[in-house]
Design a protein around this nucleic acid. Structure first.
Lengths: 249, 249
DNA sequence: CCGCATTTGTTCGTATGTATT
DNA sequence: TAATACATACGAACAAATGCG
């Protein structure tokens, strides 16, 4: 035996999406109708739809229906000078961000080590969300020393960008020192904030930014919707332009 | 309502694993027994087990049983001089590799561009598999120009390492030029080779290696078991040592 | 090598809960 | 409130893979 029934249903729907017969944003028939269409039970149809939802091709909303996902794929360049807004704008995507919460708290072991502080020193923890073309693509958790940036909280809540605040503090330029990337299952709240399927994985990017004297400015952790972003490191722009778009299938 | 029944079952099993009551490699009770244990239907138990299998905490084998996954977590450093074997040995992990297939074929558009060849020029395509402590962690697909490395195929099949073959060709040192990382669902054959759950995602790492004259040597694509590896880029080793192990939950 | 028991995989049916319109 | 649509859950049957005698 080759493919199972639910896999064939999954592939047929995926093909319809790839062929454009199911356009981004379009609504699928209800589960009951899909059962009739494919001559299958509800279990098989749900499993197929679930697999596509985890891949990010479909979005299922209880009480409303199932829709073809239309979120864009972002190519996110991570280099020594990566900036969120510059990054997206260079791809013709409209960036946006919002501050979800900001609070002063004692530095944890990891944060203290990254910022070269003592454990328990006050740090400002800022939780943000980034959008590309109005679609949420990342959750950011950043830590700054309160001693070094006393009015960071007020400024960020007022909507000012970090680059501007750094400039006011006399930091004209800053660099990314280290980056760690791994994948894991999304926490329920993360899936909620990214409006993605709870079973879909996220990419976690941990980094430390330093100033031109190599002193740490910020430690941050980014949670990214794994199917909406592709990271590039250390790329010669000329070579990078040659890469094909990814095969989503 | 808070958690659903299947989520509670999932968390109870996960807790048992975290607490060490279910040791790595241990076998879980059969589905029927788990149903009795938790007072639930097979549906709920299977959904809980499936979620943990996708996370990489459990491994389910048809006809045999369900086992606690005991694969190690690898910290893989990607820098200008990253080498597979050096990388793993520095963590006290025993590296191993095997060549699955090697064949000469015409260069595709992407490969030709990366290697600065013409489309259709003969390239050697080598498929390998990497192990850490006998657990498969990566599939490698690499492309070399046949014109530049005429006897690469024979050498690799004979078990020689690429670093040695490069040295014979007069390449004393080589560097990573560009790296792209993204996540996607594993193809069935990939899941098979990595012995991981078919619904678990993989991390794809595309890179180009160049020699000291900046001429491309190899283009390669690595497929990694997303839950068994963590990548670090451009890291100052001193700073990197300070990072905590990841929270798997 | 065959047959049988065990264990997980797939599929169907059915009922009830929850969110949206 | 009622209708619609997806979510969860139980039960049952058969298929497929494994391991043992």
């Amino acid at each position: 035996m080759g493919l199972q029934q639910w896999q064939m249903i999954r592939d047929r729907i995926a093909d319809d999406i790839a062929a454009g017969e199911l356009a981004p944003g379009a609504r699928l028939p209800t589960e009951t109708k899909l059962c009739q269409l494919f001559g299958a039970g509800r279990h098989s149809v749900r499993r197929a739809v679930s697999a596509l939802a985890i891949e990010g091709k479909l979005r299922v909303e209880q009480g409303r229906g199932t829709f073809v996902e239309d979120a864009p794929l972002i190519d996110y360049h991570i280099g020594r000078r990566a900036r969120f807004r510059q990054n997206l704008r260079s791809q013709g995507v409209v960036p946006a961000g919002e501050v979800i919460s900001a609070q002063v708290m004692p530095a944890s072991t990891r944060v203290a080590r990254a910022l070269q502080l003592n454990e328990g020193d006050p740090v400002l923890r800022i939780l943000t969300r980034g959008f590309a073309d109005s679609v949420p693509i990342s959750i950011g958790l950043s830590f700054h020393s309160v001693a070094r940036f006393p009015d960071m909280a007020a400024q960020r809540q007022a909507g000012r960008h970090v680059t501007e605040i750094y400039r006011d503090a006399g930091i004209g330029d800053y660099f990314r020192k280290s980056t760690t990337v791994f994948a894991r299952r999304a926490e329920p709240e993360e899936a909620e904030l990214l409006s993605q399927h709870p079973d879909q994985p996220v990419l976690v990017v941990r980094k430390t930014d330093v100033d031109s004297q190599d002193l740490p400015i910020a430690y941050s952790e980014g949670i990214w919707a794994a199917d909406r972003v592709r990271f590039t490191f250390d790329v010669d722009p000329v070579t990078a332009a040659g890469f094909d778009p990814p095969n989503q299938a």
